[in-house]
Design a protein around this nucleic acid. Structure first.
Lengths: 144, 144
DNA sequence: TGGTAATAGTTGAAAATGTAACTAACAACC
DNA sequence: GGTTGTTAGTTACATTTTCAACTATTACCA
């Protein structure tokens, strides 16, 4: 198993990004899955609603870059657990406004604290300067 | 839909990483999916075999940080398409050595060229210095 | 006004993934 | 040498995701 090719996978950005994303998500995944049986799609929707307060499913799709069926099903499950409420728009009844319940906000607060802790741990692997550049670069790469 | 919280999702590394990984993978995905109907797990296995020439499934699991069932299924499909061959180890018949066929290598060469092009496009979004730091940081974060 | 197109969101079936249990081969220890 | 433990890899089943088709509502425009 010796390397032959001049092409190095560890230079290929989509591969590297995926690897880093996968590994750095694992510990946080254990938290939201272990404590609330939540899926990745669900914490993402929960966090978006906590941060933006009031969104439609469409808004979430755009912000979180998730497909509408993923969002739809995440919303269903969060509603079943009474973490959010739906309210149809008066003017245009195709839209539904989503907001967190107080229970949903409580779950968010708990998970957010954990998220920040996980982030601290991750950042210990990097220098301050690396963190700054990394964030900037990731934001640049996130623009489609 | 105005931001409320002091916690910014766009600072949370697992989220940012995932977003960047997702978006920057999309164009390459269209390539391997469109041209060869391959899945993410499959191009990863293919690339590993092309680069390291001769590996067992276990080796791939470790290098690519993929679960053994994912590798097992990717290997099956690559074998069906005659992109790789299996050969049991003489000394220890629990191990199977995997190598690409010439057809598999041809597919790899084609995909590699595309991968490099995609990488070029991605890198245009970043400065040389950002690229260096980004690669270093991603490698650091990829250590579990 | 009526008919067509567009939009928000849901649903069902197929594909992919995750989890745990399984087989087969070897190792180690008594 | 036989029992027990490990390891490489596969399989079965449950859970998620994807894709396409669907409903319901509004917009557009002749």
């Amino acid at each position: 198993m010796t390397q032959k090719d001049d092409f190095d996978l560890r230079e290929f950005l989509p591969y590297l990004l995926n690897q880093a994303a996968e590994i750095s998500s694992q510990s946080f995944q254990r938290t939201y899955k272990g404590r609330y049986g939540m899926l990745r799609t669900e914490w993402r929707v929960l966090f978006h609603l906590a941060i933006y307060e009031r969104m439609t499913a469409k808004d979430i799709c755009e912000k979180a870059i998730m497909h509408k069926t993923k969002v739809s099903r995440a919303v269903q499950r969060l509603e079943q657990r009474r973490y959010l409420q739906r309210k149809p728009d008066e003017k245009d009844r195709r839209h539904e406004w989503l907001t967190l319940t107080s229970q949903g906000r409580a779950v968010y607060e708990d998970l957010r604290a954990h998220a920040q802790q996980h982030d601290q741990v991750l950042m210990q692997k990097l220098s301050t300067e690396e963190i700054t550049v990394l964030r900037r670069a990731l934001n640049a790469l996130s623009q489609p």
